[in-house]
Computed example of a mutant assay.
Amino acid sequence: MELEVRHLRALCAIADTGSLHRAARQLGVAQPSLSTQLKRIEQELGGPLFLRERTGCRPTPLGRIVLGRARPLVAEMRALVAEARAAATDDDGPQLRIGSTASRALAGWLRRLRARQREPVLQMDVSPNALLRMLADGRLDVAYVHEVEGCPLRVPEGLALRVLVEREPQFVSLPADHPAAAHAEVQLSDLAEDRWMIDPTVDGEWDAVHRMLRAAGLNPRVLHGDYHTAASLVSTGEVVTVCQPTCQPGPAMAVRRIQGDPLGVRLLLAARTEGELDSVFPGLWEAYAEVAREAPGYREWLDRVGV
Rank of each mutant, 00 (worst) to 15 (best):
F171E: 10
R139I: 01
N129R: 12
L122F: 09
V145W: 00
G93T: 05
Q170M: 11
H178E: 07
A105I: 06
A136K: 02
V163A: 11
N129L: 06
L153C: 11
V142R: 00
V155K: 03
L140V: 04
A143M: 03
R133N: 02
E166Y: 08
Q123Y: 15
Q123D: 13
R114H: 10
P175V: 08
V148S: 05
N129M: 13
L96K: 06
C151W: 09
A136S: 14
G138A: 02
R139T: 05
T101A: 04
R116G: 05
R118E: 14
L96V: 06
G138L: 07
E157K: 13
R97F: 06
R154Y: 05
R162C: 09
L140M: 11
Q123F: 14
V148A: 12
E166R: 14
L135Y: 00
L122K: 03
D177N: 11
E149H: 11
L132E: 00
L131M: 11
V148C: 11
H146N: 11
S173K: 07
P175R: 06
V148K: 04
R167P: 06
L131P: 01
W109Y: 11
P94F: 05
A105K: 00
R104H: 13
L161M: 13
T101S: 03
R111M: 10
R111E: 15
S127C: 15
P94T: 13
A160I: 06
S173M: 10
L122W: 07
L140T: 00
A105S: 14
L140F: 04
P128M: 14
G93H: 03
P152V: 06
T101N: 04
R133Q: 15
V142I: 15
H178K: 12
I98T: 06
M134W: 02
R162V: 13
G150M: 12
G150L: 13
L174F: 08
R162Q: 11
P169T: 11
P128C: 12
E119D: 13
L153T: 04
